[in-house]
Amino acid sequence: MRILLAFILGICTMQSSVGQGRLTDDMRETQEQLNASTKQINQFFRRFNGEEDKNGKRYYETDKQYHSTNLRNQYMPVLFDTQTGQIDRKLAEKFISTITDKKSPVFLDFHQDDWLAEVNTTFTYKGKKVPGTLYMRLQQQGQGYEWIIDNVSFDVFSSKFDKDTTESKKFLHPMSHELEFMTLRKAFADNQHNEQFTGKDFETDYLSIFLYEMNMGNLKFVTVKNVSFHFFSVEGYYFSLANFNRSGYNSGWLISSLVALANEDEKQQMKNYLYGKN
């Protein structure tokens, strides 16, 4: 048994990284940049939380440096996009000091946090290419988790809904019931906006329309164009992540925008804006 174990361990130690050595000088420079790049969302979480060292070595709960404030203070500034000038430096400093507060630090939690993915896609609708956005969230399911479609935004659908709420809008007069609603015939004739006949609290359910058109075969997936992520995990703030595919040491998944939220109303307004409900 000991010999078998030694043999297996020997094979394990033979394995090293994927690279085969003998890199050219320009590749060595690129390699350093790629090491600095935040390569996965998973790595963003680890760097944000202080769960890996500068060389990418994973820290576990038993490691002294795990969630270290010093480590996080070093990492956080490089987790922002520093090249496009979209981030207010003072707000970023305040944000960092909030999440690294010694008494009540804030960490990201993959499963529990209020965050979502915005997936910009191309579909074909009745044979024509159309853009559309899927809003995805994580959901506990069975023994683990799954990403689910929380909502969608398609111009090809929303352009069909433009409810007129003025006094001059079309309506079904209040005595229509006495005519057994024969007024419907004229109301629906050549009408592109039948939402005029719905209640004040009517809201278009684009997700159901999306699923109906998919299931009917009218809407077909083509490809994903790009993905970004939106976080409401840190109280008083909203931030988004985007993938910066560029050379240099500030690349990969980085914070692309940061907004201070004064209260729950502002948080809801931001969510509505993201979901295209404004």
């Binding site: 994927v18 790629l34 790595q43």
Partner: peptide, 12 residues
């Protein structure tokens, strides 16, 4: 390149 990043494992 001599780089590999291994994510956490998540249960589906």
């Amino acid at each position: 390149y001599d780089i590999h990043y291994v994510s956490d494992l998540e249960q589906q």
